[in-house]
Amino acid sequence: MSARLTAPADLRELGRSGGLAAGLVAVLDGLDPAATAPAGVALLPVALLPGSRSPAAAAVPVPHPFAAFEGLALVRFPHSTGGPGLTGGRAAALESVRIGLLSHLLDLAVDRLKERRFGGVPLIDHQLVSAAVADAVIEIELAVAGVSAGASAGAAAGAAAGSVADDGSAGSVRARHERLTGAGWTVTRLFGAAGYLTDHPVRALHLSALAADLWLAPAGPGPEAADPEAADPEEGVR
């Protein structure tokens, strides 16, 4: 990972302004995707596909209806036996990118909700809608705090202060990613049916969840795997 892009705030800004593909390029910087992807499948920035400036191992495209619209490709590495996946600092870096992307799309959603009306009242003034916006904001703040807590734990373990480091708990990072996936759905809903078309920018949140599903180190046994409700944050996020 590029040294200048290891700070969580920088990664959030990259996700916010550059999007998921740019963020993934930073997260995967210096890694061999084919050797890292935990199941030999990955969501890759097009810039990292074989034949481009940063060649990866041979990758076979898997059809996806809209990944390309975000500069991404779903691929399989046919010779891979399965890599370790993203852990520690890399997993947290992906989390920061996803937070930035989510913040950007929440801003777009709020702009829309201020403009559109239902029954003559701006959507943003309907209580259930306001509650969903608040829930998304809370999840974003919680995620930022979670990354910070992970970094502090890493720093205490000897990593460079201020960088995103391995907090030693892959399960907690996975759980935070799962909450982000739930918050992403909360924000997606704020766009209504328009957000369910592939020409809408909120498609990036679906791909953000897919990126986490494909890149994170597989979950081990534990409460997350044992209790689907506990890892289903949208249940409480409406």
């Binding site: 992807a37 935990p38 199941a39 030999g40 499948v41 898997v62 779903l74 399989r76 399965g82 996946g85 799962e178 897919l210 599903d213 494909l214 890149w215 994170l216 597989p218 979950a219 997350e224 795997a225 689907p228 890892a231």
Partner: peptide, 10 residues
């Protein structure tokens, strides 16, 4: 998705 792991998505 969680139970079957990333390979299942492909």
């Amino acid at each position: 998705v969680r139970s079957l792991g990333p390979a299942a998505l492909v």
